[in-house]
């Protein structure tokens, strides 16, 4: 059973001076799971995620992502994960295709792989017509879905999504979750943070974070029974 756990975290802590942003959190995520982090702004969701993705160095505790140590092997982890940050992080002045090519190239994809990926993404997102347009000109919902697709350009085992649906309308949110389910069906593990309660219901399991600590962790149904 152990080797199906793609994320294992034990007592992970992040301090900024006296302030404890993430306070000894422990949990495991199974392969192929959609794992949600629910909590208010400032509860420590993003900081926790940044530690798992190697963007932030944990103050103490240990963790493994995709079989690699978060403290010592963060660069190895980066090869195997995708990440979509809260801030929109594609290049607005590059076209849709150029963004895909750039991130594909950074992840070491071959020319052919990039070409295949590009047509695949454009087709799936129905963006073929705007492939040569700068990303700046796309509506926010499209941008978000493109950013999600680009974050998986190298077919990572785990995808981290930091409030991916912030600021988009409910319709786009639904579309976005459809895309998340699709990725999950391909066997990808999804780790997503949100502060929307209704979105939490789409997850297989959720953990509720309050001021740096995990206060509850279970499937949405079980949690509903408990509270």
């Amino acid at each position: 059973m152990r080797n199906t756990q793609v994320i294992q975290v034990e007592g992970l802590t992040k301090k900024f001076g006296d302030f404890v942003a993430v306070d000894h959190i422990s949990f495991e995520v199974e392969k192929g799971e959609i794992f949600g982090f629910l909590g208010a702004n400032g509860a420590g969701k993003t900081t926790a995620m940044r530690m798992l993705t190697g963007l932030s160095k944990p103050s103490s505790g240990k963790g493994k992502v995709a079989g690699f140590d978060v403290l010592k092997e963060s660069e190895r982890i980066k090869e195997r994960i995708g990440y979509m940050s809260q801030k929109f992080s594609l290049y607005e002045d590059l076209t849709v295709k150029e963004n895909i090519r750039f991130y594909g190239g950074i992840y070491g994809l071959s020319k052919n792989q990039i070409r295949t990926k590009t047509s695949q993404i454009l087709e799936e997102l129905q963006l073929s017509e705007v492939g040569a347009k700068p990303v700046r000109s796309l509506p926010l919902g499209w941008k978000q879905r493109l950013a999600f697709a680009v974050s998986m350009v190298h077919e990572p085992e785990i995808v981290f999504l930091d409030e991916p649906t912030g600021g988009v309308d409910p319709n786009v949110r639904r579309q976005f979750w459809e895309a998340i389910y699709q990725a999950s069906e391909l066997g990808r593990t999804i780790f997503v943070t949100t502060h929307y309660m209704d979105e939490a219901e789409y997850c297989d399991r959720i953990s509720i974070m309050v001021s740096g600590m995990i206060k509850a962790l279970d499937s949405p149904d079980n949690l509903k029974k408990q509270f």
Binding site: L55, E79, I81, S85, K87, Y107, G108
Partner: peptide
Amino acid sequence: EIGTIEQINVTPI
């Protein structure tokens, strides 16, 4: 400022 550097930092570059 834009945040693209974070996206680059999360790659194995």
